[in-house]
Design a protein around this nucleic acid. Structure first.
Lengths: 215, 215
DNA sequence: TGTATCCGATACATAGATGTATCGTATTCC
DNA sequence: GGAATACGATACATCTATGTATCGGATACA
């Protein structure tokens, strides 16, 4: 208490920040960052703006923190999946289906409507804000890296060969996943239909990538 | 003049609308639809808001019209390219390089920074506005159709085979193009570097699509 | 239990955007 | 060349969002 550093956040303060972030994720996804008023976010979280200005400087700061959280979650998800595969435990690969790649990739990425909207919002803003762009690209690199490892693991386990580098394959899969998610969301597909459609499309790409004369 | 229909637009009126649309394309690309005030668009166009409200009901109506214009231009570009190829005139395919597909696809899509920003903005909003979503998907279908024809033409001319349907190949090429454009823009690449990088990536995908034992 | 501090609520001041109503000018039509 | 009209500018009223300053209650701590 004698030092000048900002006071260590209390438990309730952290809780407030978390609730504001949750609310922001919803509202930003629903109406977009610029159309979302600070008031709307607070209302969704069950606070007034007093709580907001006590915890954040600006809406942009909140958004930046939210981006960090989302990125962290995605990267953590893919890393966890890699760890599972490497451990070779109960999640070890046993089906003979080489398209298990599809499932592995899909399990890594959220595919509900709001997530798609939020990701699009983040991507859109990253195009204009250099700091966000750098973070976005870095996070995507990590994702590609993770998926690359997953692909390598599966390939090794099954003796599959690829027609491109596994890194390129990973990027192609992620790109396709994002594209299909967006189009399916625009088409108004519900969660279930979205998932099905996504796995179908991803499977096609996997088929394209895998060396045909594989064992 | 005796009928009750809205007065036929005069030449100057059409000119005003066009200038407002041009300005809107710039401003919307730069700061996003929601962050762009009507005033900012008018200022960019060299008008006051009086001109705007005399020509459009709301900002959304202007945006919708802009979307239509952009979509029309893209579709027209790809159709023109198809027509050239079909006519087999001076633009006929003669290099032995099968990756001419790449050039054909790239020539169809604008790749300057502002275009990328505007397309992203449109896509982002299409996710939330059903009417926009329908238009966006329809336009993309047309683009895919056009690129499919281009691919078919080239394949026929050169006896190339594909590992997936030409329609799927077309979608994959367009998706890759968009993805690379976005990432290159985020990376701050200038127009030239963006073009080069895009063609490299597209070439990789083309390589993947083309049947390896092609003649 | 009393006190100090932290945190969110409330109240207020201000800025910016919107939409409309009105005005002035340029163009068109006879 | 005069009248009518179309079109963009101007002025105004309103609304919404923001940011800050202050207040009140809860919680921590002795």
């Amino acid at each position: 208490m004698t030092d000048t550093a900002p006071r260590a956040a209390t438990r309730s303060r952290e809780n407030t920040r978390a609730r504001l972030l949750d609310a922001a994720a919803e509202v930003f996804a629903e109406v977009g960052l610029d159309a979302a008023s600070v008031e709307a976010v607070c209302e969704r979280a069950g606070f007034t703006r007093g709580a907001f200005y006590s915890n954040f400087e600006t809406k942009d700061e909140l958004f930046l923190e939210l981006c960090g959280r989302v990125a962290g979650e995605r990267v953590a998800a893919v890393k966890a999946r890699v760890a599972e595969l490497e451990a070779g435990g109960e999640f070890a690969l046993d089906p003979t289906d080489p398209f298990q790649i599809v499932q592995q990739v899909l399990d890594v990425s959220a595919d509900d409507r709001l997530s798609v909207l939020l990701m699009s919002e983040i991507r859109n803003h990253a195009l204009r804000v250099p700091a966000l762009a750098a973070a976005y690209l870095a996070q995507e690199e990590e994702l590609v890296l993770g998926v690359t490892q997953i692909i390598d693991d599966i390939a090794r386990a099954k003796g599959i060969g690829f027609r491109v580098s596994s890194a390129q394959a990973a990027r192609l899969l992620l790109t396709t996943w994002e594209d299909v998610s967006v189009r399916a969301t625009m088409a108004g597909l519900d969660h279930k239909a979205l998932s099905r459609r996504t796995s179908e499309e991803i499977a096609k790409v996997a088929q394209l990538i895998i060396e045909p004369h594989a064992t």
